[in-house]
């Protein structure tokens, strides 16, 4: 049965565009999730100890690093030199001429043992026992920020995915309506001659699914190409990208196909009765 190329092409292009958009949103979401998770995991494996500025700060920092390195659950502790601390704190402390390094606290980076990480209290106790006045930061605030960032990024991406799902549902339903309308005379005759509604539905759905599957494949490939060209999503592993795009495309096809099925079944049911 010859089908007009224009409406088919329009269906394929629009469905492919929605699929590509959904794929890009999925990849962006995965990348942002991975990045936030990476930050959170890294921050959870570290703590920072700050010593108040004093004339003997360098000696205190070396001693504190030694004490901390010997604390159970600590893999490594190293005192950061003044220049590095200045660079780290510059966003908060820098005036027009840069921070005064003498007034900055000394920082000690502590890497925790991933198998049995020390708790914040353990470091507090160890430092107090050594008579060192210091503030232990277990990065809770930063980790919370990483989670908040992840959630803030997720909301618009979920919105885009919902929009794409609605668009695919609409295009699937619209295309099925068009296709059923185009075949209406033949379908009505077949139904009058005793064909079951299901047997009339099969060729309509087969034609729809072929177009929507093509759109789904094209949309997935376009999303992959754009993601690769932009380079913004390089942190998502290629295999994970492919899996994610396949899942998004298949879900899009399922949504559009289900709507096409529902609309075509309703129209054929109306013709039958």
């Amino acid at each position: 049965m010859n089908r007009r190329l224009g409406p088919r092409l329009a269906t394929v292009v629009i469905a492919a565009a929605f699929t590509a958009l959904a794929g890009l949103a999925g990849l962006a979401g995965q990348a942002s999730f991975d990045r936030a998770e990476g930050w959170r995991a890294r921050l959870a494996g570290e703590m920072t100890v700050a010593l108040r500025p004093s004339p003997a700060a360098d000696a205190d920092a070396a001693r504190a690093a030694e004490v901390l390195a010997g604390t159970p659950g600590v893999a490594e502790a190293r005192a950061l030199d003044r220049t590095k601390v200045g660079a780290l704190l510059a966003p908060w402390t820098a005036g027009a001429r840069g921070p005064d390094l003498a007034t900055l606290p000394r920082l000690i980076a502590v890497d925790l043992d991933p198998r049995r990480p020390a708790r914040r209290q353990d470091l507090d106790i160890a430092l107090s026992a050594a008579g060192i006045d210091a503030l232990v930061d277990d990065h809770q605030g930063w980790r919370r920020s990483a989670l908040e960032l992840r959630e803030r990024t997720a909301a618009p991406l979920v919105g885009v995915l919902v929009l794409c799902a609605a668009g695919l549902a609409a295009i699937g339903g619209f295309a099925a309506g068009q296709e059923t309308g185009r075949r209406e005379a033949g379908l009505r005759t077949r139904l009058r001659l005793g064909a079951t509604p299901f047997s009339c539905l099969v060729p309509v759905i087969r034609a729809m699914v072929a177009d929507l599957a093509l759109a789904s494949l094209a949309g997935g490939l376009v999303a992959a190409g754009l993601a690769r060209a932009s380079g913004l999503l390089s942190e998502v592993a290629p295999l994970a990208q492919a899996g994610l795009l396949a899942a998004v495309s298949a879900t899009g096809l399922l949504i559009a196909g289900t709507c096409a099925f529902a609309i075509a079944a309703r129209r054929i049911g109306e013709l039958e009765s």
């Binding site: 049965m1 010859n2 033949g186 139904l191 064909a195």
Partner: peptide, 24 residues
Amino acid sequence: PAGRARLRRRLGLIFQDLDLVEDL
């Protein structure tokens, strides 16, 4: 509908508008 379809197969209809399938 499936039962109605089976019943329709036992009928032979000649419609006034003929109702031929134009692409067959």
